[in-house]
Write a protein that binds this DNA or RNA. Structure first.
Length: 332
DNA sequence: CTTCCACCGGAACCGTGGGAAA
DNA sequence: TTTCCCACGGTTCCGGTGGAAG
C-alpha cells in the first residue's frame, strides 16, 4: 500500500505548499523576499498543526535557493530549551560545524561567532515559548546581521514569560498569524499526501474527509493518522484504509504527538510525569514522596518544582489549586 | 480573629568543565 | 602550558501565600 513513506512523515515539507499562500507571502516579505528586500524580525503564531513549522521551513528553503549571501538556522526549542542549547542547535542546523558543548561559557562564544559571520543569518526558534531563558532572544536582537523568527502557539503566552525589555523588542517584530485549517483544506492536504505516498485506490474520498474531521484542523495530527492507518493496513495485509482503521489509530496518533515532548524529558522529569500519569491527580507532597521512592538518586524538592514548572510550560502537566492544596494532573 | 500547615518560588551560592587569555 | 572566567545544573535558605484549624 505504501508507495513513498517519506511523504507520509509529518516533518516532510512538500515542494508545493497548499492553502498557505497568504502566510507564505507574508513570511517571504518579512525575510527579504519582498520588493523592499528588507529582512525583519518576525513572530509566527497559530494553533498547533496550522502549518507554522512547515511553512517557515518552506520559506527558508526558497530563501536559500534565491540568495547566496544568506544562511539559515532552525532549532526546535523542545529539547533545546536553554540559551546555549538553542544557539548550538542553530549552528548545527546551518552548515557550520557546531561546537556541541552544552556547557562552559558557550553562550557568549556562540553569540560572538554569529556576530562575526559575513553572511546574513536567519535564526528560527521553533516553539520559542518553551525557552527556559528568553535572554537569547535579546542577544540575537543585538546582532545586526541576524534576523530572528520566533514560532509560538500563542503570542501572549510567549510574552508573558519575558521581562519587559524583551517584550518591547518582540512587539516590534512583524507578526504573521496562522489560522487553523478548515476541514476542506485538511482533506485537500491529506489527498495530496495520499496521492504521493500511497498506491492509487488505497483510500476513498469519504475516508479522507472522516480523517480530516477527526483531526479537527490539526494537520500534524491528520498526517500522523494517515501514516499510522497506512502502516496498520500494511501490517494486516488490508489494501484499503477504512474508517474503522482510522478509529483504531486516532488515539495512537494523539499520543505519538504528545510523546515528542515526553521523549525529551530527563529521567527525573519522566519519573514525575509517570507518577502524575498513574495517579491522575496528585497532591504535591505525595508526588515528592513517590518520586523519592522511585528515584535512585533523588533531587532536592526545589529542583523538582523547577522541573514541574518547565513541564507545565510545555503543556505536559497542569498545576491546580494554590497554597497548601497544590495538585498536579495531566491536562484535561 | 490568629496561628498553623503545606507548598511555592526568589536569591544566593557551589562545583564543574571547557574556552580564552596570559 | 597554566590561570582565569563564566554559564549551567543543582542545592540551601527563607520569606510569601492562602486555606484549615483553633
Amino acid at each position: 500500500m505504501i508507495q513513498n513513506g517519506r511523504a507520509l512523515r509529518q516533518q516532510h515539507v512538500p515542494s508545493e505548499l497548499v492553502h498557505r499562500e497568504g502566510e507564505v507571502d507574508a513570511l517571504t516579505a518579512s525575510l527579504g523576499g519582498g520588493p523592499s528586500g528588507m529582512t525583519e524580525n518576525t513572530i509566527v503564531t497559530g494553533p498547533s498543526g496550522a502549518g507554522k513549522t512547515s511553512t517557515t521551513r518552506y520559506v527558508l528553503r526558497k530563501l536559500e535557493d534565491a540568495r547566496l549571501d544568506v544562511e539559515t538556522g532552525f532549532v526546535d526549542c523542545i529539547g533545546a530549551n536553554s540559551s546555549t542549547g538553542a544557539l548550538a542547535g542553530l549552528f548545527r542546523d546551518s552548515d557550520r560545524s557546531a561546537p556541541l558543548d552544552p556547557r562552559a561559557n558557550a553562550r557568549t562564544v556562540l553569540i560572538n561567532r554569529l556576530r562575526e559571520l559575513d553572511d546574513e543569518f536567519v535564526a528560527v526558534l521553533d516553539e520559542a515559548d518553551v525557552l527556559e531563558d528568553k535572554q537569547v532572544i535579546h542577544a540575537l536582537y543585538g546582532l545586526p546581521n541576524v534576523t530572528t523568527v520566533l514560532i509560538s502557539v500563542n503570542y501572549d503566552d510567549l510574552l508573558i514569560n519575558c521581562d519587559t525589555r524583551i517584550q518591547k523588542r518582540i512587539r516590534t517584530f512583524q507578526h504573521v498569524e496562522f489560522d487553523q485549517y478548515g476541514d476542506a483544506q485538511l482533506a485537500d492536504i491529506l489527498t495530496k499526501r495520499a496521492n504521493v505516498g500511497l498506491v492509487p485506490g488505497s483510500i476513498a474520498e469519504d475516508t479522507i474527509w472522516y480523517m480530516a474531521d477527526q483531526a479537527a484542523g490539526d494537520a500534524r495530527l491528520a498526517i500522523t493518522i494517515l501514516r499510522l492507518a497506512a502502516k496498520q493496513c500494511t501490517d494486516r495485509r488490508q489494501d484499503e484504509i477504512t474508517t474503522d482503521v482510522v478509529d483504531d489509530v486516532v488515539e495512537n496518533a494523539r499520543s505519538e504527538i504528545a510523546s515528542r515532548y515526553i521523549e525529551k524529558l530527563s529521567t527525573h522529569q519522566r519519573i514525575l510525569y509517570e507518577v502524575i500519569k498513574q495517579e491522575g491527580t496528585i497532591q504535591a507532597g505525595d508526588l515528592y514522596a513517590q518520586y523519592r521512592e522511585r528515584a535512585s538518586d533523588p533531587m532536592a524538592e526545589r529542583t523538582l518544582r523547577s522541573y514541574l514548572n518547565s513541564m507545565e510550560r510545555e503543556g505536559l502537566i497542569e498545576q491546580q489549586g494554590g497554597g497548601r492544596y497544590t495538585e498536579y494532573a495531566l491536562p484535561a
